[in-house]
Design a protein around this nucleic acid. Structure first.
Lengths: 130, 130
DNA sequence: CTTGACCTTCCCATGATGGGAAGGTAAAGA
DNA sequence: TCTTTACCTTCCCATCATGGGAAGGTCAAG
């Protein structure tokens, strides 16, 4: 498989496949005589793993750890769970942060007329009004 | 006021004050004879506005628009509200995205033993098991 | 006059992703 | 066989908001 075929098969763009290789997340594939990257099913499997992990919001560093655990058939599932739990805490933190912004903005927007008049509690608040 | 004093007074780092100036978000302040930036209360007020908007998650582009509206005493509050509403939609989108990740991970983590055994639904799922 | 704490500009890094240029190669049609 | 098209390679740049740090100038206090 060429890189674009591996991209199509894995759902990871060719650009990102090269990038993952550059940062050492995935192994360097062997090269054809013309220096083309050559991929097999196993490589595509790894790429799909990476994509699935990205979709769940894991960072590249965490994905590296997950890949190591995945490849290690003797891993204790405790390690996997710990990693996932840490990520969950982070997700909760970010959700709470966004929720706080949302609540504040909803309050302010609720009290803004939204018509031709210039007065608006949103600007007043941003301008130090609270 | 020097830049570090303006930074302390506004809560925006000196580094970011220079950056905001470079991207045209805030006006260039006048310079002292030694080429030092000199700030007044009005500048600090603007910087505080920017900081407050950042804390509510607005992008720099949106903050530029908000600043324009803030400075325009004839603005229709409709424009402010529209901008805020658009940002709220974006916040909701991001929250939903993170919530989806969180739910999935919670499900998976719930079914992972988290002990010395190697089998783990999290890795199975990432590895294409679903 | 020295020292320490400022200031200036400039470059680099983050994290994940994409755009695009310049140059080489493979496969299909004429 | 030649040409075209579609792909490959590496390399640089951009995003967005933020910070680190170097090299060199300036100010205030001891």
């Amino acid at each position: 498989m060429n890189i674009s075929q591996a991209a199509a098969a894995s759902g990871v763009s060719a650009k990102m496949i090269r990038h993952y290789e550059a940062i050492g997340l995935v192994q360097k594939p062997r090269r054809s005589s013309a220096n083309y990257r050559v991929y097999g099913e196993a490589d595509v499997h790894v790429l799909r793993f990476v994509r699935a992990a990205r979709e769940l919001g894991f960072s590249m560093g965490q994905i590296g750890e997950l890949l190591d655990l995945w490849r290690d058939r003797r891993r204790p599932s405790r390690k996997v769970k710990a990693l996932v739990t840490a990520h969950l805490r982070e997700l909760e933190r970010r959700i709470a942060e966004l929720q706080a912004m949302k609540s504040t903005l909803e309050q302010l927007a609720h009290h803004c007329h939204g018509d031709d008049r210039p007065d608006c509690p949103i600007l007043e608040r941003l301008g130090g009004g609270a």
